[in-house]
């Protein structure tokens, strides 16, 4: 780790002011970085993956809304600094939309979830081994140096949303539930505040894998707002991994199903562990919507979800696994007794 200055902000404005003037770079490379739970930031600073010269601690910002869970009749508003474990433990959210807390419960460990914030969690960076160890060439860490994973050991890498420059996986779980529900992100900026769809927050790697989100260095997520339809009570998060706990998804899915008898009125599907960014499986939703639900239909939806998959040498199994994970989750949510 390299030396850095450390400051604490007491207002959002103060925090943003510290980051003014570095708008040229992707925010992850900016010299000034926000730190909240620090579970990802401190890890990558130790590894030398990220080398900020200035850390702005936002944990003590006085604005209570950043720390509040608001349950409205139509919307759930989650402050950016709410810890993962707080939502995981929330009874009302669990009743209305089980996949939200479920996606948090299977992430990392409880100790980490007690520290990590929701906004920090959705912005967590890839765990690609070649990205984490700085002696490898990596287009995301060192633009233009090449992708070591492409023809290296790429068992955990993405098959959807990949490019010739990068096949790193977005490993988050919570984000899959958020994208399935088409959540909104509230962003505070130096100039004006803005709201964007969560689906627009992350950027696929394309030719510039170092640019991971649409956030500017002088912007900060302040809240995540989720419209939870009544039928989201029939939802679940299913995560398949090499061990029972404390591992990233090989494949996961956030599924919500709106059934009218056996007819699929509506459905939402997020896919984790298989894509470069939080992934909504719109083609799979389209296959299901308006049809009579069956295992066969679920299989067809899964095929549609992975129709454009681009597997590499060691991650080809993720296509089959991703499909099975989705079919299993769909079958299981259908059986849920509400």
């Amino acid at each position: 780790m390299l030396p850095f200055d450390y400051e604490r902000a007491s207002t959002v404005r103060e925090a943003l002011a510290a980051c003014a003037g570095s708008s040229e770079m992707p925010p992850t490379g900016a010299p000034s970085q926000f730190i909240a739970g620090g579970t990802n930031m401190s890890d990558y600073m130790r590894l030398g993956v990220t080398r900020p010269s200035h850390l702005m601690d936002i944990n003590l910002i006085q604005d209570a809304s950043l720390r509040t869970i608001e349950i409205g009749s139509l919307e759930i508003r989650l402050g950016a600094l709410v810890r993962m474990s707080e939502v995981e433990d929330h009874q009302e959210i669990s009743r209305r939309c089980p996949m939200l807390p479920e996606s948090l419960k299977v992430a990392a460990s409880r100790q980490i979830r007690n520290m990590a914030t929701l906004a920090g969690n959705v912005l967590q960076r890839t765990r690609c081994e070649y990205f984490r160890e700085i002696s490898w060439p990596c287009n995301k860490r060192n633009p233009g140096s090449g992708c070591s994973a492409m023809d290296g050991f790429n068992r955990q890498h993405a098959v959807l949303g990949v490019s010739d420059a990068c096949i790193a996986t977005y490993h988050g779980d919570f984000a899959q539930a958020l994208i399935a529900l088409d959540a909104t992100v509230e962003i505070a900026g130096q100039g004006a505040n803005r709201r964007i769809r969560f689906a627009e927050l992350h950027l696929q790697p394309g030719d510039n894998p170092e640019v991971e989100t649409v956030l500017r260095p002088d912007e900060m997520i302040t809240a995540i707002v989720i419209s939870v339809p009544g039928w989201a009570a029939r939802s679940k998060y299913l995560k398949i991994r090499d061990r029972e706990s404390y591992a990233f998804a090989l494949a996961s899915t956030a599924v919500a199903l709106d059934l009218d008898g056996d007819i699929v009125r509506d459905v939402r599907i997020g896919l984790g562990g298989v894509a470069s960014v939080p992934w909504r499986a719109v083609p799979a939703e389209d296959v299901l919507r308006g049809k009579i639900f069956s295992e066969d239909l679920a299989s067809k939806a899964a095929d549609a979800a992975f129709a454009n998959a681009k597997p590499r040498e060691h991650n080809a199994f993720k296509v089959a696994l991703g499909k099975q994970t989705l079919v299993r989750a769909l079958m299981e949510v259908r059986e849920m007794k509400l």
Binding site: R127, E129, Y130, R132, E133, W136, G152, F153, Q156, D242, R243, E244, S245, Y246, A247
Partner: peptide, 18 residues
């Protein structure tokens, strides 16, 4: 000939739940 999984994130051993 280089090691790829060089920490306990990627070199998996069972956790209690296993």
């Amino acid at each position: 000939a280089r090691v790829v999984n060089r920490d306990l994130q990627d070199y998996l051993v069972p956790v209690n739940a296993d």
